[in-house]
Protein backbone atom coordinates (compact mmCIF):
# COMPACT_ATOMS: atom_id res chain seq x y z
CA UNK A 1 0.00 0.00 0.00
CA UNK A 2 1.40 3.38 -0.96
CA UNK A 3 1.53 5.94 1.77
CA UNK A 4 0.76 9.62 1.28
CA UNK A 5 3.71 12.00 1.22
CA UNK A 6 1.71 15.22 1.39
CA UNK A 7 1.50 17.73 2.94
CA UNK A 8 5.12 18.84 2.57
CA UNK A 9 6.71 21.75 4.32
CA UNK A 10 9.66 23.99 3.50
CA UNK A 11 11.22 25.67 6.51
CA UNK A 12 13.72 28.51 6.19
CA UNK A 13 15.03 27.12 2.92
CA UNK A 14 18.04 28.84 1.40
CA UNK A 15 19.77 27.81 -1.81
CA UNK A 16 23.07 29.20 -3.02
CA UNK A 17 24.74 28.50 -6.32
CA UNK A 18 28.30 29.55 -7.06
CA UNK A 19 28.22 31.36 -3.68
CA UNK A 20 25.28 33.47 -4.92
CA UNK A 21 22.04 33.36 -2.90
CA UNK A 22 19.32 32.11 -5.25
CA UNK A 23 16.54 31.37 -2.75
CA UNK A 24 16.31 33.01 0.64
CA UNK A 25 14.25 32.01 3.69
CA UNK A 26 11.47 30.18 1.92
CA UNK A 27 8.70 29.05 4.27
CA UNK A 28 5.88 27.23 2.63
CA UNK A 29 3.42 24.41 3.03
CA UNK A 30 2.20 22.37 0.10
CA UNK A 31 -1.17 20.91 1.03
CA UNK A 32 -2.79 17.69 -0.07
CA UNK A 33 -4.64 19.10 -3.05
CA UNK A 34 -4.39 22.04 -5.42
CA UNK A 35 -2.91 23.31 -8.64
CA UNK A 36 -0.21 25.74 -7.64
CA UNK A 37 1.36 28.04 -10.17
CA UNK A 38 4.65 29.73 -9.44
CA UNK A 39 4.97 33.17 -11.00
CA UNK A 40 7.75 35.71 -11.05
CA UNK A 41 10.14 37.50 -13.37
CA UNK A 42 13.07 35.79 -15.13
CA UNK A 43 15.78 34.76 -12.76
CA UNK A 44 13.53 35.09 -9.70
CA UNK A 45 14.23 31.50 -8.67
CA UNK A 46 11.12 29.61 -9.85
CA UNK A 47 12.99 26.75 -11.48
CA UNK A 48 15.32 26.51 -8.50
CA UNK A 49 12.36 26.35 -6.11
CA UNK A 50 10.80 23.43 -7.97
CA UNK A 51 14.11 21.60 -8.31
CA UNK A 52 14.81 22.10 -4.63
CA UNK A 53 11.42 20.73 -3.58
CA UNK A 54 12.00 17.70 -5.79
CA UNK A 55 15.50 17.16 -4.46
CA UNK A 56 17.40 17.98 -7.64
CA UNK A 57 19.03 21.10 -6.17
CA UNK A 58 20.77 21.14 -2.83
CA UNK A 59 19.69 23.39 0.02
CA UNK A 60 22.26 25.37 1.96
CA UNK A 61 19.97 25.89 4.93
CA UNK A 62 16.52 24.89 6.15
CA UNK A 63 14.54 21.69 6.04
CA UNK A 64 12.09 20.01 3.70
CA UNK A 65 9.61 17.75 5.41
CA UNK A 66 7.42 15.25 3.66
CA UNK A 67 4.85 13.09 5.39
CA UNK A 68 6.11 9.66 4.43
CA UNK A 69 9.22 7.57 4.74
CA UNK A 70 12.35 8.25 2.74
CA UNK A 71 11.86 5.74 -0.01
CA UNK A 72 8.24 6.57 -0.85
CA UNK A 73 9.03 10.25 -1.05
CA UNK A 74 11.02 10.14 -4.26
CA UNK A 75 8.92 7.45 -5.86
CA UNK A 76 5.70 9.42 -5.44
CA UNK A 77 6.96 12.53 -7.23
CA UNK A 78 7.51 13.32 -10.88
CA UNK A 79 9.12 16.22 -12.70
CA UNK A 80 8.62 17.58 -16.21
CA UNK A 81 11.44 19.76 -17.49
CA UNK A 82 11.18 22.87 -19.63
CA UNK A 83 13.11 21.15 -22.42
CA UNK A 84 11.72 17.63 -22.53
CA UNK A 85 14.34 14.94 -21.87
CA UNK A 86 13.52 12.25 -24.39
CA UNK A 87 15.42 9.00 -24.12
CA UNK A 88 17.08 7.48 -27.19
CA UNK A 89 14.43 4.82 -27.37
CA UNK A 90 11.10 4.21 -29.02
CA UNK A 91 7.99 6.03 -27.84
CA UNK A 92 6.64 2.98 -26.05
CA UNK A 93 10.00 2.26 -24.35
CA UNK A 94 10.18 5.87 -23.14
CA UNK A 95 6.76 5.49 -21.54
CA UNK A 96 7.51 2.09 -20.03
CA UNK A 97 10.84 3.16 -18.57
CA UNK A 98 9.69 4.48 -15.15
CA UNK A 99 7.59 1.34 -14.66
CA UNK A 100 10.53 -0.94 -15.43
CA UNK A 101 12.68 1.02 -12.96
CA UNK A 102 10.06 0.12 -10.37
CA UNK A 103 10.33 -3.57 -11.22
CA UNK A 104 6.96 -3.87 -12.91
CA UNK A 105 6.81 -6.88 -15.21
CA UNK A 106 7.84 -5.99 -18.75
CA UNK A 107 4.66 -7.19 -20.48
CA UNK A 108 2.48 -5.26 -18.06
CA UNK A 109 4.66 -2.16 -18.39
CA UNK A 110 4.49 -2.27 -22.19
CA UNK A 111 0.75 -2.73 -22.00
CA UNK A 112 0.30 0.32 -19.81
CA UNK A 113 2.73 2.31 -21.97
CA UNK A 114 0.78 1.43 -25.09
CA UNK A 115 -2.49 2.63 -23.55
CA UNK A 116 -0.86 5.92 -22.59
CA UNK A 117 0.64 6.38 -26.04
CA UNK A 118 -2.77 5.88 -27.62
CA UNK A 119 -4.41 8.29 -25.19
CA UNK A 120 -1.98 11.06 -26.13
CA UNK A 121 -2.37 10.45 -29.85
CA UNK A 122 0.92 8.66 -30.37
CA UNK A 123 -0.64 5.25 -30.99
CA UNK A 124 0.69 5.23 -34.54
CA UNK A 125 4.23 6.02 -33.40
CA UNK A 126 4.74 3.33 -30.73
CA UNK A 127 7.89 1.85 -32.21
CA UNK A 128 9.17 5.12 -33.60
CA UNK A 129 12.35 6.67 -32.27
CA UNK A 130 11.15 9.33 -29.84
CA UNK A 131 13.95 11.61 -30.99
CA UNK A 132 12.02 12.19 -34.22
CA UNK A 133 8.91 13.55 -32.51
CA UNK A 134 7.98 17.22 -32.79
CA UNK A 135 8.58 19.52 -29.84
CA UNK A 136 4.94 19.33 -28.78
CA UNK A 137 4.85 15.55 -29.09
CA UNK A 138 8.05 15.26 -27.07
CA UNK A 139 6.58 17.33 -24.27
CA UNK A 140 3.36 15.29 -24.32
CA UNK A 141 5.49 12.16 -24.13
CA UNK A 142 7.52 13.56 -21.23
CA UNK A 143 4.33 14.46 -19.37
CA UNK A 144 2.74 11.08 -20.02
CA UNK A 145 5.94 9.38 -18.86
CA UNK A 146 5.88 11.45 -15.67
CA UNK A 147 2.24 10.55 -15.04
CA UNK A 148 2.56 6.83 -15.74
CA UNK A 149 3.62 6.05 -12.18
CA UNK A 150 0.58 7.96 -10.86
CA UNK A 151 2.63 10.42 -8.86
CA UNK A 152 1.05 12.04 -5.84
CA UNK A 153 2.74 15.31 -6.75
CA UNK A 154 3.83 16.53 -10.18
CA UNK A 155 6.29 19.37 -10.78
CA UNK A 156 6.39 21.12 -14.14
CA UNK A 157 8.86 23.79 -15.20
CA UNK A 158 7.36 25.93 -17.97
CA UNK A 159 6.07 22.87 -19.82
CA UNK A 160 4.44 24.83 -22.64
CA UNK A 161 6.89 27.68 -23.16
CA UNK A 162 8.16 26.40 -26.50
CA UNK A 163 4.80 25.16 -27.76
CA UNK A 164 2.08 26.64 -29.95
CA UNK A 165 -1.57 27.08 -28.99
CA UNK A 166 -2.82 23.65 -29.99
CA UNK A 167 -0.01 21.77 -28.27
CA UNK A 168 -0.39 23.97 -25.19
CA UNK A 169 -4.08 23.10 -25.01
CA UNK A 170 -3.32 19.39 -25.18
CA UNK A 171 -0.82 19.68 -22.36
CA UNK A 172 -3.27 21.71 -20.29
CA UNK A 173 -6.00 19.12 -20.86
CA UNK A 174 -3.67 16.36 -19.67
CA UNK A 175 -2.78 18.43 -16.62
CA UNK A 176 -6.39 19.14 -15.72
CA UNK A 177 -7.23 15.48 -16.09
CA UNK A 178 -4.39 14.50 -13.77
CA UNK A 179 -5.41 17.24 -11.33
CA UNK A 180 -9.02 16.08 -11.33
CA UNK A 181 -7.78 12.58 -10.60
CA UNK A 182 -6.14 13.91 -7.47
CA UNK A 183 -2.58 14.68 -8.56
CA UNK A 184 -1.07 17.63 -6.73
CA UNK A 185 0.42 19.97 -9.32
CA UNK A 186 3.16 22.60 -8.90
CA UNK A 187 4.05 24.41 -12.09
CA UNK A 188 5.90 27.49 -13.27
CA UNK A 189 4.82 29.54 -16.24
CA UNK A 190 5.32 32.93 -17.85
CA UNK A 191 1.88 32.76 -19.41
CA UNK A 192 -0.49 34.74 -17.17
CA UNK A 193 -3.47 33.48 -19.16
CA UNK A 194 -2.40 29.92 -18.47
CA UNK A 195 -2.06 30.72 -14.78
CA UNK A 196 -5.60 32.11 -14.79
CA UNK A 197 -6.92 29.04 -16.57
CA UNK A 198 -5.28 26.45 -14.36
CA UNK A 199 -4.23 27.72 -10.96
CA UNK A 200 -6.05 27.20 -7.71
CA UNK A 201 -3.32 29.10 -5.92
CA UNK A 202 -0.30 31.21 -6.73
CA UNK A 203 3.21 31.56 -5.38
CA UNK A 204 4.83 34.80 -6.44
CA UNK A 205 8.62 34.69 -6.29
CA UNK A 206 10.66 37.84 -6.45
CA UNK A 207 14.46 38.00 -6.20
CA UNK A 208 14.71 34.63 -4.52
CA UNK A 209 12.07 35.36 -1.92
CA UNK A 210 8.53 34.11 -1.63
CA UNK A 211 6.83 37.42 -2.03
CA UNK A 212 3.21 36.41 -2.00
CA UNK A 213 1.16 33.28 -1.43
CA UNK A 214 -2.52 33.37 -2.16
CA UNK A 215 -5.44 31.71 -3.83
CA UNK A 216 -5.63 32.29 -7.55
CA UNK A 217 -8.78 34.39 -7.30
CA UNK A 218 -7.33 36.63 -4.64
CA UNK A 219 -4.06 37.01 -6.53
CA UNK A 220 -5.63 37.98 -9.83
CA UNK A 221 -8.37 40.19 -8.40
CA UNK A 222 -6.52 41.90 -5.66
CA UNK A 223 -2.83 41.11 -5.35
CA UNK A 224 -1.19 42.43 -2.28
CA UNK A 225 2.19 43.82 -3.24
CA UNK A 226 3.23 46.49 -5.74
CA UNK A 227 5.64 44.03 -7.40
CA UNK A 228 3.00 41.44 -8.13
CA UNK A 229 0.57 44.11 -9.32
CA UNK A 230 3.19 45.49 -11.67
CA UNK A 231 3.97 41.94 -12.82
CA UNK A 232 0.30 41.29 -13.59
CA UNK A 233 -0.03 44.60 -15.40
CA UNK A 234 2.73 43.53 -17.70
CA UNK A 235 5.09 46.22 -16.43
CA UNK A 236 8.72 45.26 -16.56
CA UNK A 237 9.64 43.88 -13.13
CA UNK A 238 13.26 43.05 -12.45
Amino acid sequence: MVKAILPMRLQDICVTKSKKPILTDINLEIGVSGFTIVLGPNGAGKTTLLRTMHGLDRTSAGTIEWLGQNNDIRKRQAFVFQTPIVMRRSVIDNLAYPLLLNNIAKSLALDMAKKRAISIGLGQALEQNAGYLSGGEKQKLALARALIINPEILFLDEPTTNLDGAATREIEDMLLKAFNNGTRVIMTTHDIGQARRLATDILFIYRGRLHETSSATAFFENSKTPESRAFLNGDIVE
Partner: peptide, 25 residues
Amino acid sequence: SEYHDLLISLHATKWQRMKTLIWDA
Protein backbone atom coordinates in the same frame (compact mmCIF):
# COMPACT_ATOMS: atom_id res chain seq x y z
CA SER B 1 24.74 14.93 -19.16
CA GLU B 2 21.62 14.62 -21.32
CA TYR B 3 19.85 12.13 -19.00
CA HIS B 4 21.17 13.34 -15.65
CA ASP B 5 18.14 15.24 -14.37
CA LEU B 6 15.69 12.65 -15.65
CA LEU B 7 17.45 9.67 -14.06
CA ILE B 8 17.93 11.51 -10.76
CA SER B 9 14.28 12.57 -10.86
CA LEU B 10 13.15 8.99 -11.50
CA HIS B 11 15.32 7.89 -8.61
CA ALA B 12 17.18 5.32 -10.66
CA THR B 13 19.80 3.44 -8.66
CA LYS B 14 23.48 3.67 -9.67
CA TRP B 15 23.24 0.28 -11.25
CA GLN B 16 20.05 1.17 -13.17
CA ARG B 17 21.71 4.37 -14.39
CA MET B 18 24.70 2.48 -15.73
CA LYS B 19 22.51 -0.13 -17.43
CA THR B 20 20.32 2.54 -19.01
CA LEU B 21 23.26 4.57 -20.27
CA ILE B 22 25.08 1.55 -21.69
CA TRP B 23 21.95 0.43 -23.49
CA ASP B 24 20.98 3.84 -24.86
CA ALA B 25 24.55 4.61 -25.93
